[in-house]
Structure formats: C-alpha cells, structure tokens
C-alpha cells in the first residue's frame, strides 16, 4: 500500500468519511417529495385487478346472476362460502341461491370463487374498509353481498375484465342457451313454454 493511500485511509477514518458520504445521500433526499401519504385523508389508487371484498352482481335488467350452483363453495380453499339453493317458484327450472354467506374473516382473497363462477355472479371489488367492532357483522349474507355488488358494480365489472373473466364487449353477454338466464339475448330463442 502506498503512502498516499495509507494516509488517505487514516484521514478517512479519522474524519468519519463514510458518514459524510451517507449524509450526502440523506440530505439529497430532503429535496425530494415525500413518498408517504396521509392515509385516512388520502387514498391509494387501487388497480382494477385488485382483489378486495367480494360482491354478488346482477344483470343489467336487475336479475340475480347467481344460479346457486355451489361451485364457489367447492373452489374456496378456506371453506368460507356457504350457499343454499332452491328452485325459483316463479320461473320453473330456474335455480337460485336462497341463502349465500361469505365469512369474510376466513376469506383469503384468492379470487378462486370468481374464477369458478360459471355465470360471473361474483366479483371482487376495491372495497377494503369494512373493519368493525362486531365480528358477527363480518359474516356477509346474501343481502350484504348484493349490496356490495350494487355499490361497487363498476369495480366489479372492471375486475372481471382485468382478470379475463368477461370481455368488455356485447358478445360476451350472449349465451348460447336459455340456461343460465340470458342477459341480453340468447342466440337460440327459447320455446314458448319457457317464456
């Protein structure tokens, strides 16, 4: 080691050179805008794909999408969904969920139920602020879920588009069969006795 280098090293050690080096970085950051934001007053922009609280959706004509097939229950890795279905007395052959529960305390927000749903009745929304003092209110029932779905309908739809569950085009809402209940129009018209 040359004398120069040695001197420099001693000097650096004596002057706590590395601290000045680091302080330089620190002071430079004083000129930056802060990275943080004040949460309750400011909110993050949540991306469309975000997996938030689940909601049940309706078709544009107000008809419940869910046909109570219970596939979400089968798909759920944390067994937090319970569906009880029944036949809709007003529409023969039409099955619907008479009761639908999601225990949101158990939910792992994996989105499998949405992926499983054969009619895209479920969607995840951007809703994440539902903390409560009463744990019992976190068992979302059918009304609550439809309510979430209604209030966050746009989010829900965007979620479905983002995750390739539905295409944002007219054709995607057409169904070949009368079953499940068609949204806009069925490509094969239903016979008279079913109308």
């Amino acid at each position: 080691m040359s004398v120069m280098a040695l001197t420099k090293k001693i000097l650096q050690a004596a002057l706590f050179y590395e601290i000045w080096d680091a302080m330089k970085v620190t002071f430079r950051h004083m000129l930056h805008r802060p990275m943080t934001f004040q949460y309750p007053r400011e909110h993050r922009t949540i991306p469309d794909a975000h997996r938030g609280a689940l909601g049940l959706l309706r078709y544009d004509d107000g008809q419940e999408r869910c046909v109570g097939c219970d596939l979400c229950e089968a798909a759920c890795p944390s067994h937090c969904i319970k569906v009880i279905s029944a036949e809709d007395v007003t529409r023969p052959l039409q099955r619907y969920a008479s009761e639908f529960y999601i225990d949101i305390t158990k939910c792992v927000f994996c989105g499998y139920c949405v992926e499983a749903c054969p009619v895209n009745a479920l969607a995840m929304t951007k809703m994440y602020e539902y903390s409560t003092h009463d744990k019992r209110s976190l068992l979302f029932d059918k009304n609550r879920l439809y309510d979430i779905g209604e209030r966050h309908l746009e989010d829900g739809k965007k979620y479905l588009y983002a995750h390739n569950q539905e295409k944002n085009v007219e054709e995607s809402r057409e169904y070949r069969y009368y079953f499940p209940q068609s949204v806009a129009k069925a490509t094969q018209s239903a016979p008279k006795h079913l109308k």
Binding site: V67, V119, R176
Partner: peptide, 12 residues
C-alpha cells in the same frame, strides 16, 4: 345436452 351443469343436481 343442455348447458345446465350449474343448476343440475347430478353435477359432480
């Protein structure tokens, strides 16, 4: 066959 696995009781 109709497309009604979701409503069919035999599904599964």
């Amino acid at each position: 066959h109709p497309l009604d696995c979701p409503v069919c009781d035999a599904d599964g």
